[in-house]
Write a protein that binds this DNA or RNA. Structure first.
Lengths: 151, 151
DNA sequence: GGGCAATTAATGTATATACATATAAATTTG
DNA sequence: CAAATTTATATGTATATACATTAATTGCCC
């Protein structure tokens, strides 16, 4: 559902004001769909994000800090997210030999298999969410970049 | 900071995949800035949203349901948000005479004054966040509409 | 009018998040 | 090399959110 219908408002102060509402609204929709999608795998979108980061490093370990700096929203709970994934046996966490402040985090075979399973349907899912031509998608990316670049 | 720098990733599967990351990322930045902005008024962005909805109805009362359906993200805690604003004396809540299941919610003079104060700087703040030409802003709105329309 | 489904709001609960602080190890500095 | 500083991670706490459930009231249908 488009913004106007969703919030029952047809007039906006200006296009910039509407952009901000639309951005938050649309991102919220996308986030909700992603949450629903990943629920079938007992993951949150962020947990999936972390697993993908770990796969990118595999077979090398990653530290909590490395995961955190690559996460989409860098809040302070990478620790707890990782703990959750460890409980599900999707990653291992052990003290780093070289720097005992750090922990070595490695995705497990279970984690890799889960990602492989998700891979099968993930691209289709993303294209369903972002139903845009390549050129529209590129335009959208560049406009979003304009915003994030100045914040 | 742009997406690529923020998540230290320069290659994406395709433009659609990047759009989804970019959308969540940029909306997160905007949301964080809004949270920071409203903190000076001891409000959350959602609380501000609720106050504006109530001002739109003033001097008529609004029900919890009406507020909820106009909110940007319609979660289930409109009740609790309203309770918070009542504690701050920014609105009043009383049983609705016509339908005793409902409650009549009205913004107080304190609430209206607070909004008036925020109004003074809010447009500038929004233009700083969405630094786009009118035509770019309109393009962005239409691309976001394309996404939300199909979800 | 009595019983039942639908509506409205509030609450319970688990998890997520923001922000501050704590703890421990490494690094710098005098 | 000891003290102070910085860095890496974990934890505490308050609030936010998603989702399910409850409680009260209304409207409907017979």
């Amino acid at each position: 559902m488009k913004l106007e219908e969703a919030i029952k408002q047809t007039k906006f102060n200006n296009a910039q004001h509407k952009v901000l509402l639309n951005l938050i609204y649309t991102a919220g929709l996308v986030h909700a769909e992603q949450t629903r999608f990943f629920k079938a795998y007992d993951l949150s979108p962020q947990q999936f994000n972390v697993l993908r980061i770990l796969r990118g490093q595999h077979p090398n370990p990653a530290s909590v800090g490395l995961v955190q700096e690559r996460m989409l929203d860098q809040m302070s709970n990478a620790s707890r997210l990782i703990e959750k994934l460890k409980q599900k046996k999707l990653l291992t966490r052990r003290e780093c030999k070289e720097d005992r402040r750090q922990v070595d985090i490695v995705i497990t075979d279970d984690g890799l298999n889960l990602l492989k399973e998700i891979d099968k349907v993930f691209i289709d899912f993303e294209h369903r969410l972002a139903k845009l031509s390549n050129s529209d998608a590129e335009t959208l990316n560049s406009l979003l970049d304009q915003i994030s670049h100045t914040i």
